[in-house]
Amino acid sequence: MKQAVAVVDRVVTERGELVLRQCGGHFEIVSNGVFLMDTRAGASERLLVRKALELVRPGARMLIGGLGVGFSLAEATASAVPAEIVVLEIEETLIGWHRDRLAAYSGHALHDARVRIVNRDMLAWLRSTDEAFDAICLDIDNGPDWTVFPGNATLYDADGTALLRDRLAADGVLAVWSASAAPAYAERLAEVIGPVTTHLVEVPRGEPDVVYLARRTGPDRR
């Protein structure tokens, strides 16, 4: 039997319609009619953060691009490794959902003293700051080849990849989530940032989710 879908909240932002709906006890987020994510799984989003934290020292500064349903942030705050976790999220409404309906999925992390939520477009914020991070976890889109908004494609081109590299400390790691393999992007990461490892997470239907990790080689910016 098909499960009933109920709209919990619907807002119109500068980027269009954003909907939170509930289906079978789970929440789903839909942007302009396109399904983005739900609360059913989260294994690959947690892996994104876990693998990045395995490569940094205790006391690390972490940047998470995209709040989503909160799996990445929950994984980060469950670890003692990061001393500071900055989360970039463009949708103020989504941040609000994590203060109530989605709070359990992000581990009530908005109340963690290590967490700083920045309500900005990630690309614009990266261009405006000189902060450096030991780990950057990018989970804004469905991958380098499937962006939520056309402007996000810049995050994955040569200039955007160089910008991300410049926000990494020496030996810092960039972790990127993708709903499918993106071999050309993996090559770009290796060329612009440093050695790349690839991690696959099987999903019930379709291609495995993919997590790319690139380790920066170069002088410390801090």
Rank of each mutant, 00 (worst) to 15 (best):
H199C: 00
R101I: 08
A169K: 13
S72E: 06
R188W: 08
N152F: 07
A74M: 03
V11P: 00
V12T: 03
I95L: 14
Y105M: 04
G172T: 06
L20F: 06
A113K: 10
A80W: 04
E28M: 07
L20E: 09
D145F: 01
L126C: 11
T217I: 10
R205Y: 05
L73W: 04
L18S: 08
G65K: 06
V176D: 13
I117S: 06
R15F: 06
H108K: 15
A170C: 10
G16R: 14
A170I: 09
S106N: 15
I117P: 05
A60K: 01
A214D: 07
K2A: 12
D220M: 02
T161R: 11
V49Q: 03
T217Q: 03
L126E: 05
L102S: 11
G33Q: 08
E92W: 01
A169P: 00
A109Q: 04
L94I: 12
E187F: 01
E131N: 11
E45M: 13
T217H: 02
E202N: 12
G160Q: 15
A76N: 05
R216I: 03
E54V: 03
G218S: 07
A184P: 00
E75G: 10
L47F: 00
V56M: 02
D121Y: 12
E45H: 12
L73F: 07
R127N: 06
D166L: 04
E191V: 03
R50L: 04
A175R: 09
G66C: 14
G59L: 11
V192I: 15
S44T: 12
F71S: 09
V8P: 08
